[in-house]
Write a protein that binds this DNA or RNA. Structure first.
Lengths: 215, 215
DNA sequence: AAATATAGTGCGCTAATGTTCACTTGTCAA
DNA sequence: TTGACAAGTGAACATTAGCGCACTATATTT
């Protein structure tokens, strides 16, 4: 009841959020007023007071642009108290793999990443590997992405896998035909790799996820 | 030009970042000065001018607290601090958003994911949203992917954002031209959305990451 | 009809905050 | 040594921006 906003208040709150997103800092009363074609800052102030009272904003007194959005309007609170119980599983992140070295040696380690077990129903030996190269762009795996790899998991036809061919680590689609193994890139620029007896071939694991950061 | 920062400039920049993270808005010159025990605001101003010139932040003239961070300033500074604390941060995962409902209401909650803070240098209000539709495939975002969203972070031209247009939640590239806002899909099958005054437009946040599971 | 809540106007006041200038100090390299 | 440069001081000064009052208007409720 108390938290209910009027139409105008919603508009104001909405505009403040957009302003911050666009500018990186909050607007002044006058800027808000002028955006709505208002002539006086007093009305705006009353709206802010209302929004503050209802818990959507914090406003420092006697300070300029000192509006901050309250988490309440976003997330946290509701989840925090809903007693969400879940374990997280930590997996190591592996960067560029030095040719010849075991993938999971310390020198390749770059950090850890933890993922909620609800989303992660695989075995505990998983790790994440930083992809270099664009041979899988059509599968939505870009240079620099982290692929999450589950070793000792059954690999089926057409799965995306991480494999080692003669000390070279690659991410490709897996295909087996008449006892021959093919590693298929998802980019016209590259040719499929045919694995022969002469190659030192090792199926590292199955790619079960992809994680990418925009920086 | 040399983009290299002096020690002092790094300290200042770092403090500004922390201040914004804690308060939700940037500090004034005097607040910065007093944090460092300085008696004059002039020195601070010169530091800001330098940081601006070197491209780490933007500062509006004759406006209070009008400092905004440039992307560049993330990576570099946090870099040095990383390694100290490696907590994991939990963020909620949001599934299909019922039209009209606040994104982060319980009915939309699907779980939590936790991510190592070393890989996650953004604010704590972040959440993950399940994408439906293929309008961003050329940006490597597929149907069913989880995009990780940072609300109340400065959105720049061409950033991938989550926006609400008239109760419809979409993920698109953000573009602003002459006061007009365009939401650009990354798939030839779709047309850009032009946001007009008549639309109820709300910039939910910036997409800072993508997570995909193969199941 | 009267009361109440929401919205907005105009205007002046004052505190908050950015800007500028002249001068000092310490470091580093030519 | 001299000169360039980062850093800081102190004291105005100029502009921005929050605050508050009296008054108006329009719904909705009592």
């Amino acid at each position: 009841m108390k938290d209910k906003l009027t139409e105008r208040q919603k508009e104001i709150l909405n505009h403040i959020q957009n302003f911050i997103a666009e500018n990186g800092f909050p607007p002044t009363l006058r800027e808000i007023a002028s955006h709505f074609g208002l002539a006086s800052t007093f009305g705006v102030k009353r709206h802010l007071d209302a929004l503050k009272k209802k818990g959507y904003l914090k406003v420092e007194s006697f300070a300029s642009r000192a509006i901050s959005l309250n988490k309440k309007s976003f997330s946290e609170i509701e989840f925090e108290k809903s007693g969400y119980d879940s374990k997280t599983i930590s997996i190591p992140v592996v960067g560029r793999v030095a040719a010849g070295s075991p993938i999971l040696s310390e020198e390749n380690l770059e950090g850890m990443i933890a993922i909620d077990s609800n989303f992660f129903k695989h075995n505990k030996n998983c790790f994440a590997l930083k992809v270099s190269g664009d041979s899988m762009i059509n599968a939505g795996i870009f240079d620099g992405d982290l692929v999450i790899v589950s070793p000792n998991e059954k690999v089926s036809q057409h799965d995306i896998v991480v494999a080692r061919v003669d000390d070279e680590i690659t991410v490709k689609n897996y295909e087996k035909k008449d006892d021959k193994i093919f590693l298929i890139p998802q980019n016209k620029k590259y040719e499929p790799i045919t694995v022969t007896q002469k190659n030192n071939f090792y199926l590292v694991g199955k790619v079960i996820g992809v994680l990418r950061w925009f920086n």
